[in-house]
Design a protein around this nucleic acid. Sequence first.
DNA 1: GTGCTTACTTCACGGCGAGATTTAACGTCT
DNA 2: AGACGTTAAATCTCGCCGTGAAGTAAGCAC
Lengths: 411, 411
Amino acid sequence: MTTRGKQTVRDLRRGSRSTLLRRLYFEGPLSRQELGTATGLSAGSISNVTGELLADGLIEECGSVDSDGGRPRILLRVVPDRAHLVGVDIGETQVRVGLFDLARTELAASDHPLDETGHDVGHVVDLITTGLTEVLARTGITAEEVLGVGVGVPGIVEQGAGPDAGDTAVVHGQTFDWNAVPLGRLLRARTPLPLFVDNGAKTLGQAEMWFGAGQGARNAVVALFGSGVGACVIADGARFRGATSSAGEWGHTKVHVGGRRCRCGSRGCLEAYVGAEALVERWADAPPGASEKAGLAALLAAAEAGRPGAVALLDEAAELLGAAIADLINLFNPERIVIGGWAGLMLGPRLLPAVRDAATAYALAFPRAQTTITLSRLGPDAVTLGAATLPLTHFLESGGELPRHATRAAG
Amino acid sequence: MTTRGKQTVRDLRRGSRSTLLRRLYFEGPLSRQELGTATGLSAGSISNVTGELLADGLIEECGSVDSDGGRPRILLRVVPDRAHLVGVDIGETQVRVGLFDLARTELAASDHPLDETGHDVGHVVDLITTGLTEVLARTGITAEEVLGVGVGVPGIVEQGAGPDAGDTAVVHGQTFDWNAVPLGRLLRARTPLPLFVDNGAKTLGQAEMWFGAGQGARNAVVALFGSGVGACVIADGARFRGATSSAGEWGHTKVHVGGRRCRCGSRGCLEAYVGAEALVERWADAPPGASEKAGLAALLAAAEAGRPGAVALLDEAAELLGAAIADLINLFNPERIVIGGWAGLMLGPRLLPAVRDAATAYALAFPRAQTTITLSRLGPDAVTLGAATLPLTHFLESGGELPRHATRAAG
DNA sequence: GTGCTTACTTCACGGCGAGATTTAACGTCT
DNA sequence: AGACGTTAAATCTCGCCGTGAAGTAAGCAC
């Protein structure tokens, strides 16, 4: 049973600000009139709240719409450079820091490769700090103009509670052998900016929902198909987190109980059959010594050329992927399933029809009929953008609250 | 991103009423003082709101707590017989109608068996109407004193929207061969009472969360293990529904892609291996002609006696169940998993240790460590009680709103 | 009794959104 | 050009909200 905590009369204003700000952010320039019909707020309240937002410099008037005989509507929009966002992608091979304005334009980015020995936490934190300094220096943007830093990490993120949740985020990552790493605390020592930490697959899912193939859906699953397999579940418009933020670990769903051994230590996991690493490893004719991406590309080329081993492998992958997607459909009943990740983007065009067929064969008819299965529209760099949506989400939900350190007067 | 709709200043009062009413309902008699510290509301507001609730006859004073030197605290509680609830369980073999007071005491119940030909919708609706009339007549309670009728049905329920959502509920049930049956509309023609329709497994899960082994958990999965297999997922205190309310169809999760054929038409479903029907069917030594329950009891007895075939069958069932629970743990990251259903209650004591071990072996270590796996504490009759929680939920969330037809003055 | 402690009630206050009214800013018609 | 109709936005009044301070009630200890 939903327990919505105590609310005072000021929370109403916060809610109204948030509603209008979000509407303007996602549905482009709108007049006060349109805001009124869209949100149900009275004209008076719209005037009040937009007046506040204008005074705060968060929105601005931008032209007007001609009318037939009446006063023209004045369009309002969020000021794109009123604030900025930083997204950090801690990937398997590099650390990428991106600086965005509110309109998601990437103003600068900084890449630092991670070598084999580079997964030491201190080193990664160093790279993030360096990258952050670089993108700020290169654009001349000061820390005061940044809403916060979102960090996408590989592994399970245990969130803290309260307003500075990011400061207490703890990361459990099998890939890097990170065990209860207090990433939030380590970063807090390096920057005064608000911090937001989440799993990289989840931040990519977030980006996909807001700006990619997930747009408009309130219930969706973004399946990330790369070296491993992950998923980001969106339930009723919000990330599904579970008790300790580790929900959506789809890659270790069982497709054959007791089957192939998986790197997680268990057996029969989806990832052990259809992860890029597993596919390349299982392909008898894989070019030796090639990288995972090159190996997968070779597998795809061989299948396109009709080589039986490669065709069989990909056909089986499509069936298993479809069956695992059927599980997601049965369990989560989403409107949409988006397949992303670099391997998903590479193999997607070939596999998609078979995946759809397998999902239809394995899922219950009723929920299957409610779902469309599509490919991602965003490239792999979207992890950085997705990470930047973490402070953006906070900004929009709080009704345009600026961090304490950013109390610049209205532009 | 969560879109909380427009709120007016009156919604605050509704929220406060709901908060206090829920607190009083679940945490027994409390003083105004305790309510204040528990909810964070100011003493003045507590006085106002409890005053309203007292005037509405929804709560009453019940004694006081002695104090050491100060004015004693006056205890408040929800008036148990201020309103009543009806729960209906449309089971596979019977229709059961129960009448409860607000304290969940069953005041009367009516059972009507469903024979082989009795799954016709009109017949079921007749039985519900008859049962409803019976329990009201037997207790002398009038329709005005009933908050609503909750109905638990086997099958997927497509909910309507708006305040009278139950009136437009449509049921898709494979068991009864019900295809898009407008149960809400059919019942609306028979009774003026507010209607609430949901899947029976989900109502049982609801009961388990409120009054059974799920108490206190905000993220949980209630696994229903009967003739078939289902689940009810609770995310952050609320039923997880998905886009069209069919989320949680766990029974058709794949444990062996391409494996045993299932009654859903697909292959390799969990239900095809561990459902009671499947277990009895797969047991070579099953007593011919016995009922499903008798068959399962015989299987259990044989296993307890050490008969190899039976032992192997149950051991395999435990492993598969554990593996499928591992999938739930990975995907939903719950604090608690509750195993219920009549087969779960029957086999639970024997299977539970092996199920726990299998779940540990197959799930990721981090989310597994956050979860406890327990057996249900409620009997199978809890479906009726769970169904009755549907109008109760509405009552508590609306802050104690009485249906239009029940505007009796305060007692 | 007198004083002290604690629970509860009352009341003035600032803030909120709704809805009515007023002002603003355009077309169009004469 | 100027009056008029039309629509957008701003302003104002109203009832309601929760807060917090001040006041009242109801017990105990001395």
